[in-house]
Design a protein around this nucleic acid. Structure first.
Lengths: 195, 195, 195, 195
DNA sequence: CATGAATGAGCGTTCATTCAT
DNA sequence: CATGAATGAACGCTCATTCAT
């Protein structure tokens, strides 16, 4: 559909400028300049600046969530182990993120003050992610493959550690490729820190 | 001193509204309304909105950094173990943070787009914290008390996990007291996640 | 072009209020109220208050300078004499000024404190006018049609006398038509004051 | 009187900063900083910024007017000629002005937009000066020592030529001492411009 | 569908003036 | 007399949004 192409074109332009300058510093003028469209055209496809940002986040979330496969407890030795399934999930997520640095920047920016209300999309995203992860951890504890713990807290610690590393990478504070990324993170999660 | 009291009063009001609405959504009008002062009075004590935010961050950073004691390698069995020193540091940090929920909210907000330049105070803070932590981990590895790892990456994973939990707590997604907080986090860091 | 018409409309409104209240006492609010436009529209056509004032001065300067024709030394008795050329120049200038009382008021206001720097457009204008006039007087002295004198000083005295009369006229202190204006001024310049 | 000394001290400080920065760019803060007094003290001696500017102008006007002696028609050859009386008046004025460059700068600035109303002190001053001069010229015409002319216009041309030269001097566009100043101006007025 | 000129609420900031001490 | 902390009206300017063409 022609109009969907237009919509995608505007979204792509918006992603670049939002990643570059952040939500607040980005003006509608920046987006339409990047997209090469008229001001009014922008409002034909999106309800406003806030709405296009939401649409952008939705797309990123979808992409990410599609990469997370449910863990299946292996019934026989020739099926993938839980750990390798986790590693594959992590690998897919990290790959997806590192291929789209703009998306990482947008996710990491946390969109402070995005919203008048207390809730915003990013909080909702991380909140849902936390819940899903806590449930997964609960399952893992039941199955005896995860240490007993406050799974909610651990879930957010887990998400946080991922975000911490991604943030440092996005800011250029550390250099690492996908393989090293996943290896380090899993080592951290598997073996703990202290000997 | 009377003027310092006034300054503190304004800072306190600012902390509440910044925590509540975030940097961008907070107007000078909000701060002065909360502080119960006139517009001009605000500019008697601070150079502007940006300046009072920086002052706020500086105060929070100072408070936190003062709680981090350097680790001393025990020379005899009756001195505190490394792990207990880490636990004490963590405990002091967490206590300090949980006593000041507004400060946590401000720290967690990441201040997206705070600044025209790429650098901002929060990034600088987390960056410095990461460096300091990476060095500490290097020491730990040398001493044989920490698993060999990419310490920079691990440092940011560590900070991230702390931030993740604090964020969830500040958002009301998890409920936990200081003791439980530290226990869970240390268990996560010590034992790893997977059995 | 529609947008040029709008620009002209705003310039015209600005000229009236600047002449009426002076640069400092005039607010952007006054200009947009006079022009019957919204605040934002003003900034679509001018970079700000200072910029529209400069544009106004530029227009006035252009108009005036276009009225000054270079003096041509007559080679034969049937060509215009120097004095009549001077008279014609003066006549054109005076006519141009008296047809636009607002412009006179703006030029006479001297724009005190217009600028942070010591230089401003009005000073630059009168400065350039003084230089040009001093050179013309130098030529006149060489040609034996002007008394030997400090031509720079005389140039500024000359400009000053014109400004003095225009100011008095703009302030309503004297009443005179263009013809009388030029006659009096030339009599003053030709014959001197004292018998 | 002690309080008059204080008043003078503030006036002196004000004269310096008004001359330096102009009326609008000068803040009450500048004046009290220069005078070394507290903000409130300023308002004990003057009603406000506008009032101290007026007081300053009044002092300058008084000084100047005191230097203008009425012309006395010589009854015998050993009394001063009219021309020498005029020259002496001019000399006293110029001396007074050139000794106080700050005063010149203030007088030349014209105080654009000083006032909401159309009238202001500078206009009043130049207006009065013009009237007085026109009357003097009328007398001169009656006595046959001045060419017949529109004396009001001529008066303002005269004042203007003085102001023009003073302005150029204050702006640093011409260099001249008092003697040269008076000589050039009188030559201009006596002999006219054109041969 | 597309345009871009027009809008106006709202921003951060300044500074002449006041008044309790 | 002297102080200086406090005031608040008013400023110049921005930018997300609208709508007639």
């Amino acid at each position: 559909m022609a109009s969907n192409k237009r919509r995608e074109q505007i979204l792509a332009a918006a992603q670049v400028v939002f990643a570059d300058k952040g939500y607040h510093a980005t003006g509608v003028s920046d987006i339409i300049a990047k997209a090469g469209i008229a001001r009014g055209t922008f409002y034909l496809y999106f309800d406003g600046k806030r709405a296009i940002f939401d649409a952008l986040l939705d797309r990123i979330f979808e992409d990410l969530l599609a990469r997370i496969y449910p863990i299946i407890i292996p019934q026989s030795p020739d099926e993938a182990t839980v750990e390798s399934q986790i590693r594959d999930n992590a690998m897919r997520l990290i790959q997806c993120l590192m291929e789209d640095e703009d998306a990482v920047k947008i996710l990491m920016a946390e969109a402070e003050g995005l919203d008048e209300g207390a809730q915003n999309r990013l909080m909702a995203f991380y909140g849902r992610l936390g819940e899903w992860l806590a449930e997964s951890l609960d399952d893992g504890v039941s199955l005896g493959i995860i240490h007993a713990c406050n799974t909610k807290v651990t879930a957010h610690a887990l998400i946080g550690s991922l975000r911490g590393v991604l943030w440092a990478w996005a800011m250029g504070l550390v250099e690492l490729d996908e393989q090293a990324f996943v290896n380090e993170l899993l080592a951290f999660l598997r073996g703990g820190l202290l000997i």
